[in-house]
Amino acid sequence: ENVFHPVECSYCHSESMMGFRYRCQQCHNYQLCQDCFWRGHAGGSHSNQHQMKEYTSWKS
């Protein structure tokens, strides 16, 4: 089941984030949609070496 997250992806700027959401544990307010995370995208001061937390629902 695809879950809708009402936040913007920090890389592709999609405002309709579906599926899993990934939030960086080091960068303030840096979040990736499932597609950008799986493709290994990073931007700004974010590094792929940073720990990311996976969210499967909006409330989590």
Rank of each mutant, 00 (worst) to 15 (best):
E1C: 15
E1D: 12
E1F: 00
E1W: 03
E1A: 05
E1S: 06
E1T: 07
E1P: 09
E1V: 05
E1L: 01
N2Q: 12
N2L: 07
N2G: 12
V3L: 13
V3Q: 14
V3Y: 12
F4M: 10
F4N: 12
F4I: 15
F4V: 11
F4T: 13
H5P: 08
H5F: 06
H5Y: 13
P6Q: 06
P6W: 08
P6I: 10
P6M: 09
P6K: 10
P6E: 10
P6G: 09
V7E: 11
V7W: 09
V7L: 10
V7S: 11
E8D: 06
E8W: 03
E8T: 05
E8Q: 07
E8H: 09
E8V: 04
E8A: 03
C9R: 00
C9S: 00
C9Y: 00
S10H: 15
S10A: 10
S10G: 03
S10R: 02
S10W: 01
S10Q: 03
S10P: 03
S10D: 06
Y11V: 06
Y11P: 01
C12S: 00
C12W: 00
C12I: 00
H13S: 08
H13M: 08
H13P: 01
H13A: 08
H13N: 06
S14W: 03
S14N: 11
S14H: 09
S14F: 01
S14Q: 07
S14G: 08
S14M: 07
E15V: 12
E15L: 09
E15T: 12
S16F: 09
S16R: 12
S16G: 08
S16T: 11
M17N: 12
M17V: 11
M17R: 11
M17P: 11
M18C: 06
M18N: 14
G19Y: 05
G19N: 10
G19V: 08
G19S: 13
G19C: 06
F20G: 15
R21P: 13
R21F: 06
R21E: 09
R21K: 12
Y22N: 03
Y22D: 01
Y22I: 04
Y22G: 01
Y22T: 03
Y22S: 03
R23T: 11
R23N: 12
R23Y: 07
R23I: 09
R23Q: 12
R23K: 14
R23D: 10
C24T: 01
C24E: 02
Q25M: 13
Q25A: 05
Q25L: 10
Q25V: 12
Q25E: 13
Q25G: 06
Q25S: 07
Q25I: 06
Q26E: 09
Q26P: 02
Q26T: 11
Q26W: 02
Q26Y: 05
Q26G: 05
Q26F: 04
C27S: 01
C27K: 01
C27A: 01
C27L: 00
C27N: 00
H28G: 08
H28C: 08
H28L: 11
H28E: 13
N29M: 10
N29D: 12
N29P: 03
N29V: 05
N29R: 06
Y30I: 02
Y30P: 01
Y30C: 02
Q31W: 14
Q31C: 07
Q31Y: 10
L32C: 12
L32F: 00
L32W: 01
L32P: 01
L32M: 01
L32K: 02
L32R: 01
C33T: 00
C33I: 00
C33K: 00
Q34R: 10
Q34L: 03
Q34M: 04
Q34C: 01
Q34K: 14
Q34P: 07
D35F: 15
D35E: 11
D35T: 12
D35G: 05
D35W: 04
D35N: 13
C36G: 02
C36P: 02
C36D: 01
C36Q: 01
C36F: 00
C36T: 00
C36K: 06
F37D: 02
F37I: 09
F37C: 02
W38H: 11
W38N: 15
W38M: 15
W38E: 15
W38Q: 15
W38V: 14
W38T: 15
R39I: 04
R39G: 11
R39K: 15
R39T: 08
R39V: 06
R39Q: 14
R39F: 04
R39H: 13
G40E: 04
G40N: 07
G40P: 05
G40M: 03
G40H: 05
G40C: 05
G40Q: 04
G40S: 05
H41F: 10
A42E: 13
A42Y: 03
A42P: 03
A42G: 10
G43Q: 03
G43A: 04
G43N: 14
G43T: 07
G43C: 10
G44W: 02
G44R: 05
G44Q: 00
G44M: 03
G44S: 06
G44Y: 03
S45C: 12
S45D: 15
S45T: 13
S45I: 03
S45A: 08
S45G: 14
S45L: 07
H46V: 05
H46W: 03
H46N: 04
H46S: 06
H46P: 05
H46L: 03
H46Y: 02
H46I: 03
H46F: 02
H46G: 07
S47R: 08
S47D: 12
S47N: 12
S47T: 10
S47H: 08
S47M: 04
N48E: 07
N48Y: 04
N48I: 06
N48F: 05
Q49M: 07
Q49H: 07
Q49L: 11
H50A: 02
H50S: 02
Q51G: 05
Q51M: 04
Q51V: 08
Q51S: 13
Q51N: 08
M52S: 01
M52I: 04
M52D: 02
K53G: 05
K53E: 10
K53L: 08
E54G: 04
Y55S: 15
Y55K: 02
Y55W: 13
T56Q: 12
T56K: 13
T56V: 07
S57P: 15
S57Y: 03
S57F: 03
S57L: 07
W58I: 15
W58R: 13
W58P: 15
W58G: 15
W58A: 15
W58E: 15
K59F: 07
K59I: 03
K59C: 11
S60D: 15
S60F: 12
S60R: 14
